[in-house]
Design a protein around this nucleic acid. Sequence first.
DNA 1: CGATTTTTATTACCTGGTCATAATTATAAC
DNA 2: GTTATAATTATGACCAGGTAATAAAAATCG
Lengths: 193, 193
Amino acid sequence: MRYQQKERRQENLRDIIARNPLLTDRELAVYFGVSVPTIRLDRAELGIAELRQRTRLVANEAIELRALGQQEIVGKLLELKIGRCGRSELMIDKTMILTKAQAARGHHLFGQANSLAVALIDAEVALTGSAEVKFLRPVRLKERVVAEGRVIKRKKDKYWIEVVSRVNGEDVLSGKWIMFGFAAAAFAAGEGE
Amino acid sequence: MRYQQKERRQENLRDIIARNPLLTDRELAVYFGVSVPTIRLDRAELGIAELRQRTRLVANEAIELRALGQQEIVGKLLELKIGRCGRSELMIDKTMILTKAQAARGHHLFGQANSLAVALIDAEVALTGSAEVKFLRPVRLKERVVAEGRVIKRKKDKYWIEVVSRVNGEDVLSGKWIMFGFAAAAFAAGEGE
DNA sequence: CGATTTTTATTACCTGGTCATAATTATAAC
DNA sequence: GTTATAATTATGACCAGGTAATAAAAATCG
């Protein structure tokens, strides 16, 4: 009655474990209406590791991701004179590139420059008012982008900032920002949640 | 000789497990120069779960992060006529906001608009040449940003594109892109790695 | 029908624990 | 010194979720 389903079951098994790696053999056995040894056999034939190894692999991934998340996506500050000028660097890693183009996605370069602009503002809360950005050439994997920003003008809460990003001295991005700086208290009035 | 160090050891234990949750009791025992039962006692007194539970917790985190990563950071396409116009939406979640300002980081909005511009290009590889962007008002948690883009002009590989992003019909970002579209083969010439 | 494949059962063993109990230490108190 | 106390270690019985190997049973096909 339920025979010759080996192939189909094994395909499903592969999918299900891929989507949910934290299922025990017993749970899988119940799911497929088959005995635990059958599931073990299937896993063996498919080269799928046991639950605890799978869990560990996923956990390791999490630890890497966590480390990645903590390393600011928008670059590391090299020097900063608040209200004056500053520099930051960004290493282009594989998570930032469009695979086809082998070039960094524009918003990473924008993010670096924008974050530098934020850091330059002498205020608790900085918002991007407007930005005018030119992408001068694509940036590739493993290149080191150094952004250099300067405050050109300031009137009260309004700041004019220029940023140029370079790879090996060659300009890759240039832009002008107009930003607003507030005290956090003044801003917090309009919060949600 | 090695006595009365219980407190210090337990503090260290807490730290070490927090930083590296995937250590077995045996490894910890070796590290502290103490027996495995002592480590178990310490864990019990500190309310720290066993290795496999810790691993599972970290793995669950990873699965959530993975799910987050797959939901494109740069928005979901609503409609697209390649070479003509298109619309995409982006839900602002807690990972996109600057905690102090309660406003979305600029590069997410930029990323959405930029990605839409890329999608509009009728080419295998699209690069941002230059962009001129205005951020008209900050965007907050849980707001739904709809970006609308149009190709205004095209000369060979060069495209002029306009994008306007709105929340509830209100403009929050507007910008003009100049982009270049290539066939992937033509581009792949200058690859690294 | 018999041969073959698939599935199930069974057993011994492994890791990394739990829990409880007992024995051993180290340290300070008298 | 001896003793009370706290900290540490040892021990044994048990558990989940496996590995690995072997045998038995069931389903399918020629």
